[in-house]
């Protein structure tokens, strides 16, 4: 069963008198274990599509199945639960909770999932170790570098063992070497743990690492390349 199934997806934004057509009939299917990059010029609808798939925003029309569920039929609480249990997010600007330590940031998703404390702690420590942050568990976001913060965000996204991780330009704020490290980390997680990744990106290194590159133009899929 495919993890994402999108067909003829439209999303329009009303901006005053003008209607902005951000997505104009997107068709896309993603299978478990894929490592896919969405690319395309600025304004082509990458972020919009990720938001739809991430159940953060609702389409104007079209069909949208995530993890086998038709999102149109879910209530906002059910959407919350879907995000909580089945999806992971990595944002361009990290978006960690400033009052929580690295450990707590990665932990609270598990906490919301209702996992018992000891198991949770163990899992988070392992995850932080996987992303190379062993020993930095107690630092707050303000005390970490950008790359380290993004690693915490990755840990937060994968700690709950999601079916799909969505990442919107995860490397855009990072310097070249740090970005390379992060890409390798995500490749490793995909490879070793079978986590499905979907990126929106302009970064050629990400596209290089991707197994499949979907190119968007003007709110449509223009090209779908599998390597």
């Amino acid at each position: 069963m495919s993890i994402v199934h999108v067909s003829d997806l439209h999303r329009e934004y009303q901006q005053g008198a003008v209607t902005v057509k951000a997505l104009r009939g997107v068709d896309l299917t993603i299978e478990p274990g894929e490592f896919t990059a969405l690319m395309g010029p600025s304004g082509s609808g990458k972020t919009t599509l990720l938001n739809m798939i991430g159940a953060l925003d609702r389409p104007t029309s079209g069909k949208l199945l995530v993890d086998g569920k038709d999102l149109a039929s879910l209530s906002s609480s059910q959407l919350s639960d879907l995000r909580l249990h089945r999806l992971g997010f990595i944002f361009q600007s990290y978006n960690l909770i400033p009052v929580l330590s690295a450990l707590e940031n990665a932990e609270f998703v598990l906490q919301l999932q209702g996992m018992a404390r000891d198991e949770r702690r163990k899992r988070v420590r392992e995850t932080l170790a996987q992303v190379g942050l062993a020993g930095m568990e107690d630092r707050r976001p303000g005390e970490l570098s950008g790359g380290q913060q993004q690693r915490v965000a990755v840990a937060r996204a994968i700690a709950g063992k999601p079916a799909l991780v969505l990442a919107d330009e995860p490397t855009a704020n990072l310097d070249s070497a740090t970005a390379q490290g992060l890409i390798e980390l995500m490749e490793k997680l995909n490879h070793e743990h079978g986590i499905t990744f979907l990126f929106a990106t302009h970064d050629p290194r990400v596209m290089e690492a991707a197994h499949r590159v979907v190119r968007m133009v003007d709110g449509k899929v223009a090209e779908d390349l599998r390597k």
Partner: peptide
């Protein structure tokens, strides 16, 4: 706003 938006995106239910 942004921070609370993140919490919501990560799956914090409206009631919570």
């Amino acid at each position: 706003t942004r921070e609370l938006g993140v919490l919501k995106a990560l799956g914090l239910r409206p009631t919570r």
